[in-house]
Amino acid sequence: MNSTVVHSGPPADPLPDFQPLAVDGCEAVVLQVQQLVKSYGRGGRPAVDGLTFDVQEGEAFGLLGPNGAGKTTAISVMCTLLRPTAGSVHLDGIDVQAEPGRVRRLLGLVPQEIALYPRLTGRENLRYFARLYGLKGLELEERVADALELVQLQEHADRPVNSYSGGMKRRANLAAGMLHQPRILFLDEPTVGIDAQSRNLILDSLSRLRQAGTTLVYTTHYMEEAQQLCNRVAIMDGGRIIAEGEPAALIAGRAGCANLEQLFLQLTGSHLRDD
């Protein structure tokens, strides 16, 4: 599955050959989003406008869209960070709005920013977040070690995060989000602005997580990544889903599209989104 698509981010690098997991129709629905609306202030256009989709156990679901499409807002609502204006989100059958405390035990978030304490070491950061997840003792140390190993930061674990390269910080950011082995992991552009090697390693780590049963909800601007990592994608624009399905099926169903990026540009237009 080697792609020749060149995107505006980092140069196209060979990515690990991920095989999207076959999704059995009988798999349990982990995430159910229904008619989700989120508006900021009165009178403005909703950032998310009637979003509806399901994500099944073990899926890697890509949420794609141009800047301002509503991806981050949608993830924020799903992760209990924002209250929806209307609609509902259920995670493992639990209403996110009604029982945010229970939902938080099931989810992990890898935000766009490097959400770590720069002056703490990688290991100190992970220990801190692991404690907040309720881990302790030997289990905590094992999880921290596993997470460091997954993102290959064992050798640098005792260095302050502010001495890390951009790629190392992104990897540590991922490690902090999956320490507690969440049922579903939300990743908001986890590979922005990093070197090819780190990007490759992050995608490899995500693939391993998925194989271990973790459900992924993934936003990215890099279509190549989405095409290779996600078994299903939804393309958003203006707060709405304008296309949803398996990448190959979406590409095949649209004339003149050889890959997901071409499909994306056809659907969302090639004009700049500077808002």
């Binding site: 960070l81 938080r104 935000p111 920013e113 490097i114 959400a115 977040f129 907040l132 997840y133 902090a176």
Partner: peptide, 19 residues
């Protein structure tokens, strides 16, 4: 707040009052 740590903290199963 600016570096996203608060965002991460708010998704953790721990009371904000405890933090």
């Amino acid at each position: 707040r600016q570096e996203g740590t608060l965002q991460r903290l708010r998704t953790l199963p721990v009371s904000p009052l405890a933090i």
